[in-house]
Amino acid sequence: MRGRVWKYGDHVNTDVIIPGRYLDDYDVRSMAKHALEDLDPRFARDVAYGDVIVAGRNFGCGSSREQAPLALKHAGVGAVVAISFARIFFRNAVNVGLPVVELDATGMFESGDVALINLEKGIIVNETTGRTGRFEPLPDFLLDILRDGGLVPHTAKRLY
């Protein structure tokens, strides 16, 4: 996958990814419209399909709201790359089919760079600068969930 980078800092929490005031609405288009609104009002307006978020430590900390990865996914985000993730966000992202990458060297990206990611091989390339980074690929059973498009289609396949 390939996309333009949006760079953020540490501890990007689920309240800024999708504020509580919008959580009564389970419509994914409405969630997408408000994604990251309290952190970066430009994001939801300008994000393009396949764009990549690159952030620091503890991405997605806070509430268990699955609307957080859903909002990012339906806004068009192709993957989130961070030094570390809060555990519930990490699970939710995989479960809704939003790829997550744990990468120490997030300093290799600036906003606007183009990132190329190979999830299976654990390789990430900054096409703007030519730098290459490596990361530990997800365990196979999580990659399987992502390949199936999330836990819903994955479980449906197992049940029947």
Partner: peptide
């Protein structure tokens, strides 16, 4: 511990979780 909504659906269906 806290989990997400979609994996809770899998718990409702199977009673198990990784």
């Amino acid at each position: 511990t806290g989990i997400g909504a979609t994996e809770m659906a899998a718990v409702w269906a199977t009673g198990e979780l990784w």
